[in-house]
């Protein structure tokens, strides 16, 4: 599989603060990489750099082997979709209209014919079909997050950058969202997802990147990365790494 995102020695500094410190990370098409780490470790900043929102102070980012600065906004929109951490919608647009906005990059192309199908599929995958006629502003936090995910899926891109897609979700929908992400990856998409639940990351991600104060503390397959000593150092709380009967690691704090 080819490399979708290549982050090469990237640093982001604002004033005196170093948010991301010389991070290198390649994400390939067909895999899910989970970004984990404590609050303020630089996960969202790194995701912003990969999305092209932020210009790194040092280092370079390439998207399908072309420097991200060489892409224009529309090309990027057809290549990758981004789910931000908080999702506002000004004015009371209906859920269907919001999801349909995800089709905007394809307007005027041959893919425009797929609009209805893409929107319907995306809404089914995010389990928001029953909310279609509700206004976005009337939804609960979890419902908003799922509608925003549907918007991102409707964009039908080869790369997905998801910033805490499971934060406001109940148990079932957390699993559903990550199953959708996995299905996307199996279909060839590159998926980068910021998560807080390490067990969830272990169950669904192909690789986990652990961030610690702007640097990459560890990167690799869940089984290799989730080491109790390293996690205790990064998070500042003692943890136990257990084995689920199916073989995936489970991380729980020592209480």
């Amino acid at each position: 599989m080819s490399v979708a995102f290549s982050v090469d020695e990237v640093s982001v500094r604002i004033g005196d603060a170093t948010l991301v410190d010389r991070v290198s990370l390649d994400v390939e098409h067909g895999e899910i990489v989970a970004l984990v780490g404590p609050n303020g470790a630089g996960k969202s900043t790194l995701l912003g750099v990969m999305a092209g929102d932020r210009t790194p102070s040092e280092g370079r980012v390439t998207c399908d082997e072309r420097a991200i600065t060489q892409w224009n906004a529309l090309e990027l929109a057809r290549h990758r979709a981004v789910l931000p951490q908080d999702n506002h919608v000004a004015f009371s647009f209906r859920v269907r209209e919001v999801v349909d906005m995800g089709r905007a990059p394809w307007r005027g192309t041959a893919d425009e014919e797929d609009d209805d199908a893409a929107v319907a599929t995306a809404m089914a995958e995010a389990d928001v079909t029953h909310l279609a006629e509700r206004t976005f502003t009337s939804l609960s936090g979890g419902e908003r997050a799922r509608v925003s995910l549907a918007r991102v899926l409707a964009q039908r891109t080869q790369a997905l950058l998801l910033d805490e897609p499971t934060a406001a979700l109940d148990l079932k929908h957390q699993e559903d969202v990550l199953k959708v992400a996995r299905a996307q990856a199996r279909a060839g998409a590159a998926v980068v997802v910021v998560l807080h639940d390490l067990s969830l990351a272990a169950a669904y991600a192909d690789r986990i990147a652990v961030m610690e104060r702007g640097t990459l503390a560890a990167l690799g397959a869940p089984r290799d990365v989730l080491d109790a000593h390293m996690l205790e150092r990064v998070y500042g709380v003692p943890v136990r790494v257990l084995d689920d009967p199916d073989g995936t690691p489970i991380v729980v704090p020592v209480r």
Binding site: L74, N87, A90, A104, R151
Partner: peptide, 18 residues
């Protein structure tokens, strides 16, 4: 149509190619 996208916020509108 672009004003519709702007309702999602500037950043997200930008992610959609605006």
């Amino acid at each position: 149509r672009r004003y519709d996208l702007l309702a999602l916020g500037e950043r997200t509108a930008g992610h959609l190619g605006l």
